[in-house]
Design a protein around this nucleic acid. Structure first.
Lengths: 354, 354
DNA sequence: ACAAGCTGTGTGTGCGCACAAACACAACTT
DNA sequence: AAGTTGTGTTTGTGCGCACACACAGCTTGT
């Protein structure tokens, strides 16, 4: 194969037409006779043409606005990290005419989300990225954006219907499986494990149910159901005294309790409790590199963290949208983020990740 | 801050000079008076100028050849993966005029390396990437390339002296620490662990020594030296009967042996032995997602793999070289790859990684 | 003293592409 | 028959940058 890069001009020459015609064929802008179109397409294929993305970005000096609909619970560094990723991508893509406008909502108030989503819709951005925390309430917006022809990318929480341009995030079920593996390897003798959902309405949070399902299936698939006893518990931290009492009860009633799997980033809540009560030896696994979790990981109270990489999720969401809008590249329908197992010793690479 | 992207033209305007002058300042091509240079630099900083890399790559239609000096032991999928990463980068960068020429050598024969390295030097490429497996023999080439002004990037094995443009790979010491953490968490009762170097001349392989050092230091730093006994062993598989006998001896003489840390990707050798001898319960940790290791990871013989991501190393090596040559970006002196902990359940994400 | 070389500066061109504008020509209308 | 629309095509311009070139004013060497 030749090492010369094929340009539009080369195709035009071979086809005996001008570059403008080739351009119209490439972008399907019409105004090309059927036979010429076919001829050009054939030559494009033959010569294995690949557009020069630099030139493409340079030539079209459009300005694209991307709306980012992201929770903004300032106390929750998880979402802040997602925003950091978004901002990083924005900085890199600014020169291609990408501007990201953030619309933040309260992740615990549906109304707040609805209001912001309406605002986004009225602004008519070129693309939307969002973390669809409220399943039911989000669907009508998907419908509307589809009819308005606004592409949208979802991240963090998977919703396959209503064809988003792309989903970016983890496979919750698989991460449950992984958590099962980790806990069972940390304690190989028969004992009981807890599955803790903290501060969540798990009826509405399908991804947490998937995590639990994965966790449970790890044990059944590996014939460990007889060896380990599993128990689910839902906890709220609003009333901390109550939280403590519930934990006290759990510890007391489960003398063979050896491990706890927290399905969210709230593992630090249990870690705090364990330190207060001077309970040692209990294996604790939860999600995400928020400062409190890192604190307890370093102290050995949390054994492992599973990194959901919110920063990467934000970054790739914007990036894929830009690939679609600016470079007209095809983007993958699903981009599963890796399930990073984080211990004290490899923590740094996930914090400082570029 | 304004959302307008700053161009060379804007800087020229503000400085009251032409774009050519700004260009000369930017590339330090001389022919600019000292005061003008300072003024322009000041304005560049003030306006937070960032070059448009698309335009930069577009304008200069040079062709760059990068020489890749990589082991090619066809039976070793580790290096094949590195090559896959290199090829992926090459494909992406072809349109910017990057061509990668591979020079493969036998990783077990110094002469083979020397010969190829000489060949590379005589071809005078625009940049060189290499895995410097033979420390002593590589240094003279570094010297030569430095005088010839050929930038080189090393990966996989770190050599800090002789200022390479960049090192890409893992922090061996840190990965030893991590291995210590993993093994000690897998077996929390007092016992003894083995550090196994297989098929290597560890006198010449500094990175393996660093791994061992890290591993040992994990235990001393965490006051676990009393609890766990550590023992180093060097094994060769050439004579497999001998290998087996050595292993038999080790098992017999260490009744409290509970875990083995293999400093390379050769963990599958020990896994094979363990299966043959029907030895169960021994915890095994080693490196890299080569097929045989994956096989034993799936069967539970290997507990965890630490992924050194050869694919990523190859990819980033070419990428950084292109950043330097084509886009004139500054590249980081060290890019440490993350220490990925791989279990059966998160294996997929590291295999199919884009 | 005057060509030759150096220094500091401005100008012009082209990279591959997107897109607008211009153009040619046919098929209709009125 | 002249105008009107629509279709297929070409031509031209500009994106931001690198780099070759032009040129003026100055310093040398002979």
């Amino acid at each position: 194969m030749s090492n010369k890069v094929v340009r539009i001009k080369d195709i035009a020459e071979r086809a005996g037409v001008s570059t403008g015609t080739v351009d119209r064929v490439l972008h399907d802008r019409g105004r090309v006779s059927q036979d010429v179109k076919e001829k050009v397409l054939k030559i494009i294929k033959e010569m294995d043409y690949e557009p020069n993305y630099s030139a493409r970005a340079l030539g079209s000096n459009k300005i694209y606005t991307i709306a980012a609909l992201v929770p903004n619970h300032s106390s929750d560094s998880y979402w802040n990290q997602a925003i950091l990723g978004i901002e990083k991508a924005e900085k890199e893509l600014k020169q291609y005419g990408i501007t990201v406008i953030r619309y933040s909502f309260n992740p615990h108030e549906v109304d707040s989300f609805m209001e912001r989503a309406k605002e986004v819709t009225s602004k008519g951005p070129d693309g939307i990225i969002l973390a669809p925390l409220f399943y039911k309430e989000t669907l009508p917006f998907f419908d509307e954006w589809n009819t308005l022809n606004i592409p949208f990318i979802i991240f963090n929480t998977q919703i396959s219907e209503y064809n988003p341009l792309s989903y970016i995030g983890q496979d919750s079920y698989q991460s449950g499986l992984l958590a099962g593996r980790l806990l069972s390897q940390l304690h190989s003798d028969p004992c009981s494990f807890l599955i803790a959902h903290i501060d969540e309405d798990i009826g509405n949070a399908t991804h947490l149910m998937k995590k639990e399902q994965g966790f449970r299936n790890y044990f059944s698939h590996n014939n460990l159901s007889g060896k380990y006893k599993l128990q689910r518990v839902e906890l709220q931290r609003k009333d901390y005294a109550l939280f403590q009492r519930q934990m006290d009860d759990l510890i007391e009633n489960n003398p063979d309790l050896q491990g706890i799997y927290v399905t969210t980033s709230k593992g630090y809540a249990i870690a705090t409790y364990l330190e207060q009560r001077h309970i040692k030896g209990l294996k604790l696994i939860c999600y995400d590199l928020v400062p409190k979790n890192i604190h307890f990981l370093n102290r050995g109270v949390i054994s492992f963290l599973i990194n959901q990489n919110p920063r990467g999720q934000g970054y790739w969401s914007v990036n894929h949208m830009a690939d679609y809008l600016v470079f007209k590249k095809s983007v993958p329908v699903i981009k599963y983020m890796p399930l990073d197992i984080v211990a004290k010793e490899n923590l740094n690479y996930f914090i400082h990740e570029e």
